[in-house]
């Protein structure tokens, strides 16, 4: 009975499980490489990583980043280098989350979390300044009141980019370089990425054993 086959199917579908999730109550885990809101990282001693080089602003295809560098005050330096990011602004009305800024950054000062659930009611709120972007003393991104953070949003922040960027280390150029300076845990290398080398890289850089995964940063 070819005519009634369709009716059988629609009837049967009524009792099958739904594919819809009730969004705001029920959040799906985000993809591991999701690109979200940026964070400005600090070194373990609390110094800012940004050196005000403006490479991120230069590479940004949406031109949403505005950076001004300034010389570090000699008595109270803000970053380890000569200069620091005096002004750092990202306009989230323009940002396309392409992550090119993260790739360009020589000090891994700017990385991306997975957070994308944030909204604004005016333009001023959409322009994040250093005050909002900078991580806290524990290295975790700030959770601003108008942002909806899930717990894994800040984990392994932008590890994908670090996997491809040379990050200023000439001897690891072109190789997978994992680091754990932010994100509470070293990501295991993915399929096709150099296994031992990757782990060795992270260990090498931070001088840690297995416990690197649990804290951020540590022993330089």
């Amino acid at each position: 009975m070819g005519y009634f086959e369709g009716f059988r199917i629609t009837f049967k579908e009524m009792f099958k499980p739904r594919v819809t999730t009730s969004y705001p109550e029920e959040l799906r885990p985000k993809p591991e490489r999701a690109h979200g809101r940026h964070v400005l990282n600090r070194h373990e001693d609390g110094m800012e990583k940004c050196i005000g080089c403006e490479l991120c602003a230069g590479v940004c295809p949406a031109r949403c980043i505005y950076v001004r560098g300034a010389d570090n005050p000699t008595d109270a330096p803000i970053s380890p280098g000569e200069r620091y990011g005096f002004v750092y602004e990202i306009n989230y009305l323009r940002c396309i989350h392409c992550d090119l800024c993260v790739e360009a950054c020589p000090t891994e000062a700017i990385t991306e979390s997975k957070l994308f659930e944030f909204s604004f009611t005016n333009r001023a709120d959409a322009i994040y300044t250093k005050r909002e972007l900078l991580v806290g003393d524990d290295g975790r991104p700030q959770r601003l009141p108008w942002e909806l953070w899930s717990d894994d949003d800040e984990a392994n922040t932008s590890a994908w980019v670090r996997a491809t960027a040379s990050s200023g280390r000439a001897d690891y150029e072109g190789r997978v370089g994992w680091s754990a300076e932010l994100g509470y845990g070293i990501r295991a290398p993915e399929v096709g990425q150099a296994g031992e080398d990757a782990v060795a890289t992270a260990d090498d850089r931070h001088g840690h054993g297995d416990d690197v995964g649990h804290g951020h940063g540590g022993g330089h």
């Binding site: 629609t10 009837f11 579908e13 009524m14 099958k16 499980p17 739904r18 594919v19 819809t20 009730s22």
Partner: peptide, 13 residues
């Protein structure tokens, strides 16, 4: 609601 059921959706809720 019924159409949603038949299409594996939730429908108005």
């Amino acid at each position: 609601k019924l159409i949603a059921d038949m299409q594996n959706r939730i429908g108005p809720n």
